[in-house]
């Protein structure tokens, strides 16, 4: 075995990436359909489906909060990881700066959405 091996911290980011990838594959398309097509065009769903009181109630529900946080945060962790590695793959040797921007924005957005969601009360 080689000497001086350093354990990689990648599992943290890779797990968030994996979870986000799975989550976005499962919910992404249907969310685009509901929020972008079905509700605005009143197609299959009544137009008041996403009215303010309904969405507020959703965001005040414990499970609803979890879902919204997961959609925002996991999608972003997924995107951050993918963008960071795509930079690497097209030959841009992205350093600490790119890492901070990619993962940092996902982290900041996670914290901000958690604070806002908690601030909406239960």
């Amino acid at each position: 075995m080689k000497a001086g091996l350093k354990r990689s911290n990648a599992p943290i980011f890779w797990s968030l990436f994996g979870a986000g990838g799975m989550f976005s594959a499962l919910f992404g398309p249907v969310l685009v359909f509901i929020t972008g097509i079905a509700v605005p065009l009143s197609l299959m769903l009544p137009s008041e489906t996403m009215s303010y009181p309904k969405m507020l109630a959703f965001a005040q529900n414990f499970i609803g909060k979890g879902f919204i946080l997961a959609v925002i945060s996991l999608f972003l962790w997924f995107a951050a990881h993918r963008i960071f590695h795509s930079l690497h793959e097209i030959g841009i040797h992205a350093g600490l700066g790119a890492k901070l921007i990619c993962y940092g924005s996902a982290f900041v957005a996670t914290v901000v959405s958690a604070v806002v969601l908690l601030g909406l009360g239960f």
């Binding site: 075995m1 080689k2 091996l5 350093k6 354990r7 990689s8 990648a10 599992p11 890779w14 590695h85 690497h88 793959e89």
Partner: peptide, 16 residues
Amino acid sequence: ERMELVAAEEGVFNCS
């Protein structure tokens, strides 16, 4: 034993 190498910075997480 081999996990030390798999989990290292030289290991599997280089793969995209």
